[in-house]
Amino acid sequence: MNSIVSIQNLSKVYEGGHQALKEINLEIKKGEILALLGPNGAGKTTLISTICGIVSPSSGTVKVNGHDIIKNYRDSRQMIGLVPQELTLGAFETVWNTINFSRGLFGKKRDDAYLEKLLKELSLWDKKTNELRTLSGGMKRRVLIAKALSHQPEILFLDEPTAGVDVELRKDMWNIVRRLRESGVTIILTTHYIEEAEEIADRIGVINNGELLLIEDKKELMHKLGQKQLIVELKEPTENLPNLLSKYNVSLSQDGAKITYTYDTRGDGTGITSLLQAINESGLVLKDMQTTQSSLEDIFVHLVHDDGFDQKEKNIDQTAKEEKPDAH
């Protein structure tokens, strides 16, 4: 495997005695988008901060492109850009100065053309002479992204990039993430929103209580989750399933008012159209219908629940997604 970050048996015990990371083993592939999914307090920020050099590991090793993060910290950090979770910015410097400062910290010569392009991409160009304290929260987040990218890193860490972020910024951010990925940048983001991981990631890792519970290709994960159900409500209940429906994977509810059809979303055809036709031909009258899908949420809730995680703490709605039927 062509891994760019290699984490072995990484543990972190904070001064107070709290163990925030427990023997983490993780290989991050070059060029991938990896989402680390987990509830608050899971250890996501600790993991990222350790790789970036802000938190000292208690035990274990981390290598970035073969460079040990402690022995060869200059080489490892050179490759990394970090967008922190909190809006940790100075107050009195201007946007332009602060990104030049960030770039300089990484030992890079000034490059006004690149920084101008970066600021424009983040809609910050007209704010370049503004002092940081005068910016709104969303603008500050943009500045943090610009700072992280100011030295053209090969690995980008985004710690809860969309927490409290407006639609516009979220859109811009995903555009940048996609562009960076196309140019070969490896991206690691943390989130506690499953939809986000689902939307953007190539691989998904689930972390809770300092443990990495699962790491898998999103596609594989989705494959496991690919089953969908169509529930057809009937105007008049029926006692038995009509013969016409016997070739479909359907079941009848006990009261005879609902027919549930299970199908694979990744198949060529879902069979919904012909099923509905068959229902029609059987003389049954439709009242309503809906589809449900098991999602990453289900897996997540399942994993985290098994792990003894307190349900009240999490930000995830446990009910399966309910959607109107797709147009087929």
Binding site: L82, P84, T88, S102, L105, F106, G107
Partner: peptide
């Protein structure tokens, strides 16, 4: 302010 993070995570 917390902005020290970038000095700590830079190759400095």
């Amino acid at each position: 302010t917390g902005s020290i993070y970038e000095v700590l995570s830079a190759p400095v």
